[in-house]
Design a protein around this nucleic acid. Structure first.
Lengths: 137, 137
DNA sequence: CCATTACGATTACGCCTGTAATCTGAACGC
DNA sequence: GCGTTCAGATTACAGGCGTAATCGTAATGG
């Protein structure tokens, strides 16, 4: 029985760790798409888009390693970086955090809000209906 | 001292302004629930819960005023604070930001994720079905 | 071998955030 | 009137974040 106040450095495999910032998240996305990759590879994928230079990417990579979100594997004189936390875990944590903060933990109000804000495309709606039907089974 | 701090950016009326932090958001919630209120009132509502002291609340209130999220109205020697941005606008902005960042702007994947993570209660599901039926009309 | 590269590591630095303490001035009790 | 009190305003300060330059060092091309 794990006391939930165990906030030390325990890295259970799979789920989120230290709280990933926005810039860091951009780096994670690249590695979730393909891994392992070198710092240069990652930069290739995001530097243009975000206006970053290589040192920035390296800093973010280091911080992510420190936070336990990435793992390094030496490859000659450089590292290959691989995610240690799954994208789905991250996404789940973040989604839950938002629902918690803004909608009292209830998902329906979120949905209502999206609907009302016309943030739902017909495709979204169709897909959601499909998912609902599937859940019913 | 001409360090060219960013120029003041003008605020259109109604929607989100300067980016409200987590602690600031807690303060906003209190004022969204009832307003106007004094700093002491707000503290009454959150200080215990968050372990804050009055100065903390005042700092947050000031920052929110600076950010254009609150408005003050003098009442004797103190202020009454009132939200300038609507909760729905804030919630909309934040929701959209998340959907954008994590789900490529598509709401269906968010829903799928919540469903899969069992973050949807039967009530949620019923409510969502109701909303869907309503949208169809 | 040696100069150049190509890496990661270390350091930098200003802004934002969380969390307050202190200052200043007006109102109130006496 | 005058000190106490209670507001807001000002200042503080550490840690995180965004963004990077610089340092130290190992591999590499001659």
């Amino acid at each position: 029985m794990a006391t939930k106040t165990d906030a030390a450095r325990d890295e259970g495999p799979g789920q989120g760790a230290e709280r990933i910032s926005e810039a860091e998240h951009a780096v994670m996305e690249v590695l979730w798409q393909r891994s392992p990759q070198t710092a240069a590879d990652v930069c290739e994928a995001v530097c243009k888009q975000r206006g970053w230079s290589i040192p920035t990417v390296k800093t973010l990579l280091s911080r992510l390693v420190q936070k336990g979100a990435l793992e390094t594997q030496p490859d000659g004189r450089r590292y290959l970086y691989t995610p240690l936390i799954a994208r789905s875990a991250y996404v789940g944590t973040e989604s839950k955090r938002l629902v918690e903060r803004l909608f009292g933990g209830r998902a329906a109000p979120l949905f209502a809000h999206l609907a009302q804000a016309e943030a739902l495309t017909p495709d979204d709606i169709a897909e959601i209906e499909r998912l609902l039907r599937e859940m019913k089974k």
